[in-house]
Design a protein around this nucleic acid. Structure first.
Lengths: 351, 351
DNA sequence: CTCCGCTCGGGAACCGGTTTCCGTCGGTGT
DNA sequence: ACACCGACGGAAACCGGTTCCCGAGCGGAG
């Protein structure tokens, strides 16, 4: 009484071998490779495989050294449009290169991040890509350095994307996009439109991405021989809420400005809402610019002038360099360029 | 000459055992469990582990039956805000339940989807969650049914989210959100504002999500004894571009309407831009509503009236039921409710 | 002072594959 | 007709863990 029902809740290679009347090695050979197997045997084995709907256990293969390599992508929150873009790039490139890709949101929890990286080390992931700015404290450097070493000694590799680089000698690949340069170009554009008092809606004061953008803001002023009013730079975080809150506050306090530059498109979106609520017209009454060029930037009204960051390409690049590099190679530090994209939210002032 | 350098490119449990002067079983016990081990031995082992920075290979553990289970999430494009929301929910819940979570974007490619599901079966994933509408063809049903059976026979489980359910008896959990009901409520709201000719910007004609929303649109009209002009329902897809294109066409063709309901917030965003380009005021000249309540809906100007779909909760629910259910349990079919959220883009007409 | 039982740790089998090593078989060259 | 060679397939070792099974000590009870 052969049970032909799909009972085979978990068929092993030996089950298949038994059914085909051959040994396990033969099944493995038929499935795996280029080893000479007679046509008759191959047919019998393949039939058994088909009948049992057999698929070799990927974990077992991995442990035997023949497996799909894995790659991990760690971010704060997949919901952020720029992160999502990067994730997309990472994921595409990863499985173009035949890698599995697992994603983890840390919700900004350092503990969680650490835990996950450890788990990836256990999975023998080929590389771990960490993305998202952070405060550049010595605690950060030590912690990250430890991760890098430990991954490296396990034959894996850590890639930092848009994160503060570690000291020299750390087995890390760092890929940054040019925050300062982008902000510089953007603010220069705003200033070139005749604006003289431009409000800066920044991020957390110790967050390197925020710092870079703020530096660009300042540098652009200085390059014109201007010294921006310190009261014009506000700190919050990178959320829409922060933009909304900061903008309301600025309006309420009667700050004077003719343009506002937000550290993020999300912040800009919040600011825009606040401006609208105050009955102000953008760009008629005040110009507004963002940063990141998330897809939605062009859907805002007016379409947002912003800085384009090649997030998806960034993701692809991250996996490419991560997988190309071996443990012995020297560390690498890439800086991706950005460019401002002019839309409708910034116009000349003093009309 | 003991090399204390972190040469241990790949230390096994036996290496640790050797260093600690015990057997591999003992190391395993110290690390793993509650098995009685003397304090002295434990200390020695732990020291060796620390010195070698050892982490047990997760794949080996998995194969031995002690491992972090895995769960897969397959979607079209992580870049879509609603998908990202779901992914977030899935991911959070997955690792709250101690599961690893891998994500795969299929770019809408059926071949790729199939391939990935097969790979997940090889990984012995605890469950595979498939999300995103599709055309409900017999080819679709057969293909999906095959996936379901094959996963089920491997002790895994397929979860369909917002996808056309299969026939009865398929080992599948289906979770849908109420497209028809949501659209009905939304359109009813629009009609209650006095609008009589409302344009519907739909999706692909064979896409079940699009169909559901269109049915709701029609039903809301009929419930008022109205029979909407067939010329008022346009088909495209769920992208911003589609909304933009459709809206321009409608305007150009001189279609008459006082409100437009888009099948998606993205479509609404595109439509809004087209409306603005045409010099029309929203909601002054024409009202506009979307569907999905993606986070950006409230950043549009005017803030978009739309239907809230609990995407994140949907994701969480998906993994919860997927993991709760065993192969023997009957299939399950959940329908999540939605509700319209009234913002500023729809107002009374005929003022 | 024995005997019993409990604590502790080692050996070996096992998880599900791959690969090396070797033996067998059939066919060919001389 | 015999040696040799290449094709084929099985047994066993291995990958890196876990766990069952068992034996060695040790302490306490009788």
């Amino acid at each position: 009484m052969t049970r032909k029902s799909e009972d085979a809740s978990r068929s092993t290679i030996r089950d298949v071998a038994a059914r085909a009347g051959v040994s396990a090695s033969t099944v493995s050979r038929v499935l795996g490779g280029v080893y000479p197997v007679s046509a008759a045997t191959r047919t019998r084995v393949m039939r058994a495989v088909r009948e049992m709907d057999y698929v070799a256990d990927a974990r077992a293969k991995a442990i035997a050294g023949v497996g799909t390599p894995t790659l991990a992508f760690v971010l704060e929150d997949i919901t952020g449009p720029s992160f999502a873009l990067m994730a997309h790039g990472v994921e595409r490139e990863a499985n173009r290169l035949g890698h599995l890709c697992l994603v983890c949101s840390t919700e900004g929890d350092v503990e969680h991040e650490l835990e996950f990286v450890e788990m990836m080390r256990a999975q023998r992931a080929a590389a771990v890509i960490l993305v998202g700015g952070a405060a550049d404290t010595v605690e950060y450097r030590e912690r990250t350095r430890r991760m890098a070493d430990s991954l490296s000694s396990a034959g894996s590799r850590l890639v930092l994307c848009g994160r503060p680089p570690l000291g020299p000698g750390a087995p890390v690949t760092v890929i940054e996009y040019d925050n300062e340069g982008g902000a510089y170009a953007l603010v220069a554009h705003v200033l070139s439109q005749g604006h003289r008092r431009v409000l800066f809606l920044g991020g957390k004061a110790d967050h390197t991405t925020a710092q870079g953008r703020e530096r660009g803001y300042l540098a652009a002023h200085r390059a014109r021989g201007m010294d921006p009013d310190p009261a014009l730079v506000l700190n919050g975080d990178f959320t829409r809420d922060s933009g909304h809150r900061l903008m309301r506050r600025a309006l309420k306090e009667g700050l004077e400005f003719t343009a506002v530059v937000a550290a993020t498109d999300m912040v800009a979106a919040g600011a825009l809402t606040a401006l609208h609520e105050a009955g102000l017209d953008v760009p008629g009454d005040v110009s507004l610019a963002g940063y990141d060029d998330i897809p939605f930037a062009r859907d805002l009204h007016p379409a947002l002038t912003t800085v384009h960051v090649p997030y998806e390409e960034l993701g692809r690049l991250a996996v490419r360099t991560a997988l190309g590099r071996t443990a012995e190679d020297p560390a690498e530090h890439l800086l991706l360029g950005t460019h401002v994209v002019v839309r409708d939210s910034v116009t000349a002032t003093g009309s």
